[in-house]
Design a protein around this nucleic acid. Sequence first.
DNA 1: CCTAAAGTCTACTAACTTACTAGATTTATA
DNA 2: TATAAATCTAGTAAGTTAGTAGACTTTAGG
Lengths: 143, 143
Amino acid sequence: MLSKKCKYAIHALVYLAERYQQGPVHIQDIADAQHIPKKFLEAILLEMRNAKILHSKKGKGGGYYLYKKPEDVNLVEIIRLMDGAISMLPCVSINYYERCEECRDEVTCGIRDAFTGVRDETLKVLSRSTLAHIVKRQRDLGK
Amino acid sequence: MLSKKCKYAIHALVYLAERYQQGPVHIQDIADAQHIPKKFLEAILLEMRNAKILHSKKGKGGGYYLYKKPEDVNLVEIIRLMDGAISMLPCVSINYYERCEECRDEVTCGIRDAFTGVRDETLKVLSRSTLAHIVKRQRDLGK
DNA sequence: CCTAAAGTCTACTAACTTACTAGATTTATA
DNA sequence: TATAAATCTAGTAAGTTAGTAGACTTTAGG
C-alpha cells in the first residue's frame, strides 16, 4: 500500500498538472481542494521541489507550479521519491537493492524469480502513467 | 514492500513444499534452515494452519506439513493472509476495498484508473506463482 | 520602506505497526 | 510417565507514519 504522503503527492501533482502553465498555485488552494492537511502538504511539495519536479515562488502571489512537463512525470518517479522501492522484495529492487539475508543463492531462488516478474509488470504500467495521461484520462471519463 | 512476516511465511512454505508428503517437519528445523526466529515462526505457521494451508501434528514426532497441494497455493493467497491487500490503493483493492477520502468520484478518477492496471498485472503474475512453480523453478535453476 | 501574504526551516509528538520474546499449557508418543 | 512437540496468552522495544507548532525568510504592492 502507498503511504498517505504518497497519495497526497499524486493528488497534488495531478491538481497542478490540470493547471499547467497557469501560474503559481497556493499551497492552501491545493490543500483545500484535495483535503490534505496544509502543513503536511508543505513538506511534501518541498520535497518535490527539491527533486526538480516542481518550482515555487515565494512571497505575495507566490505558490507552486509544475516544473517538469506533465508528460515527463510518471508514477514511478513519484512513488520512488515518496515511498522508496517499487518492488515487493529488497533483493529484486532496482533502486533500493538489498541482499536477502534468508536466501543462500539469489540466482537459484524461485521466490526472487517470481517477484522479479511482478516488479517488471508493475514498472511497465506505472511508467506509462504520466500526469498528462492521468489528466487526459479523467477528462475523457467526463470529469 | 512485503513485511518480514510475509517473507518468512513464503520461505517456510517453499521449504515445506520441497518436503511435500514426507511427514511433519519441526518448527525448529524450518527456523534453522530459513534463519527465522523460532517463536515468530510459530505464530506464522499457526496462522497458516488456521487458514487451512498447513496441518500440524502435536506431541513427539509432530510438526507442520502442507495440507493444500503445492500447485494450489499461490503467492496471492499467502500475501493476502500475511500482509493484507495486494493493491497499492485501498480504493482499487478487491479484498480490502475502502473508499478514497480524497477523491470525489471514483469512476472519473484517473489515479484510480492507473492503479487498477497495476493491480491486475500484479495479480496475474502472483497467481501464476504457486509453490509447485517456485520449487520446480529452483530445481531447474540447479539448486 | 512597510506590511501582508506567501513559502521555508527546525523541531517535536502521538498513534500505529512491526518484529519480535517469555512463559505457561496442552497434546501425543514411546 | 517422561519428554518432545505444538499452542496460547501476554506482553514490549524500536521504527515508521502522519501529522503539528512556531519562528523565519522572501516578495509584491501600496
